[in-house]
Design a binder for these strands. Structure first.
Length: 395
DNA sequence: AAGAGGGCCAACCGCAACTTA
DNA sequence: GTAAGTTGCGGTTGGCCCTCT
């Protein structure tokens, strides 16, 4: 000890701003493989020029497979409104009641939509109230009218005062001191029940120990079939919302010669030619044409199987590929390739051939730790956004 | 067609809480 | 018990995109 508190990261050494697909891919691959025991160390181990905090945020808010994307449903909005009434700006608590939604997302939706909606509702209610009071003022005493007016005022303010760290002054709770405090505590207790665990912390593993030996997918069979130790990635037919992010990652079609990602619209995103990284990816690639990597140790990951099994896996891979294409709206691309299965197989084989030449011992890597990141191997070019991540339509 | 303005959202910042040595 | 280290949380902001004029 006695070193003084280290800064969260060396700001001059880290990259900031939007994440590139390459970075996303690197992060997700690393977490799939090793988990995220130590966010601070993760960027270095994963070869990312980001601070740990940034990695964590990116994972939690965007890359987790169980992140639900798309517009909030009416029910979700209702829930947020209710919970905000009870809990105030405790976004993470609120998020724990909305599976797949992140605190950041909820906060955004509250600040951009719900707050306004409620404020307009309240102002309408307040003006109605005002009118009714003004009409009744002649028939009631001045003291009683002033007290009711102030209470209505406080109720509308309370909802809007989201700047407070813990805003418990919900309309029901205001002005009822002790009772309201009990009410609030009970409410909190009830709400927190069963949700006390951190909903974010779902992939906590031993660092640099392979998390999923069976995750070296030669088909999607093994994806998501493991215990809670691994990030779940579902198959076709499962809740597709939960798949979108990971699918995007897996589906990026990269040019095996240039190591660049081809976007559907033919834009090209350079991906770093970090061969260790691609080696890792090899073990995650959902459509590996065969298991014969020419390296004995790979047999450990890619269980050898009968010809029939392999064939059926190939078929499943194709299905999976098609499914992903559909999900991503890449049918056109698929059609172009519709001579199809042959082209796909060709592509996959080509892909595999190139990557095969960069194979290294994954197990060894897992044992000694991921090799030091060489910044020279990383391009600084980035794409501001995933090429195919569906943007939410305005509410 | 262009630029101004506002909405939206991903990411950053700083602090608090928690954990570890 | 205490200080350092790490993680989590909530507030804020930068910049893209869409709409309006």
């Amino acid at each position: 000890m006695g070193r003084g508190r280290a800064p969260c990261c060396d700001k001059t050494q880290v990259k900031r701003g939007p994440w590139s697909p390459a970075e996303d891919l690197r992060l997700i691959t690393f977490i799939q493989k090793f988990g995220h025991e130590n966010w601070r160390a993760l960027p270095k181990q994963a070869g990312l020029l980001r601070c740990g905090k940034s990695c964590r945020l990116r994972w939690i808010n965007y890359l987790r497979p169980d992140v639900k994307r798309g517009n909030f449903t009416k029910e979700e909005e209702e829930t947020i409104i209710k919970l905000h009434k009870a809990l105030g700006n405790r976004w993470s608590k609120i998020a724990s009641h909305l599976p797949g939604r992140t605190d950041n997302e909820i906060k955004n939706v509250w600040n951009t939509h719900l707050k306004k909606r409620i404020s307009s509702k309240n102002s309408t209610a307040a003006s109605d109230d005002q009118i009714s009071k003004e009409s009744s003022i002649t028939s009631s005493s001045p003291s009683s009218s002033s007290s009711s007016s102030s209470s209505s005022l406080s109720s509308s303010n309370s909802v809007l005062s989201s700047g407070n760290k813990h805003n418990f002054e919900s309309p029901e709770l205001v002005g009822n001191d002790i009772q309201s405090d009990h009410h609030r505590k009970d409410l909190e207790k009830n709400i927190d029940h069963d949700h006390d665990h951190d909903h974010h912390a779902q992939v906590k593993k031993e660092p640099l120990k392979e998390v999923t030996s069976s995750f070296s997918v030669s088909s999607y069979d093994s994806i998501g079939s493991n215990s809670s130790q691994i990030v779940e990635v579902s198959k076709p037919g499962d809740d597709h919302d939960h798949q979108e992010n990971y699918m995007d990652l897996m589906l990026l079609d990269y040019d095996v010669n240039t190591m660049e990602v081809n976007q559907p619209d033919d834009e090209v995103i350079p991906l770093e030619a970090d061969f260790d990284f691609w080696d890792m990816l090899d073990n995650l690639c959902p459509f590996q044409p065969n298991n014969n990597h020419g390296h004995d140790h790979h047999q450990v990951h890619c269980h050898s199987s009968s010809f029939e099994e392999e064939h059926s896996r190939e078929i499943e891979n194709k299905k999976w590929f098609r499914y992903l294409e559909n999900e991503l709206g890449l049918e056109a691309t698929a059609k172009e390739n519709d001579d199809g299965d042959e082209n796909l197989q060709e592509l996959v084989a080509k892909d595999h051939d190139v990557k095969e030449s960069f194979q290294c011992d994954i197990e060894e890597e897992a044992r000694v730790g991921v090799q030091e990141f060489d910044p020279c191997l990383t391009t600084t070019t980035y794409c501001p956004m995933w090429p195919s991540l569906p943007k939410k339509s305005p509410i």
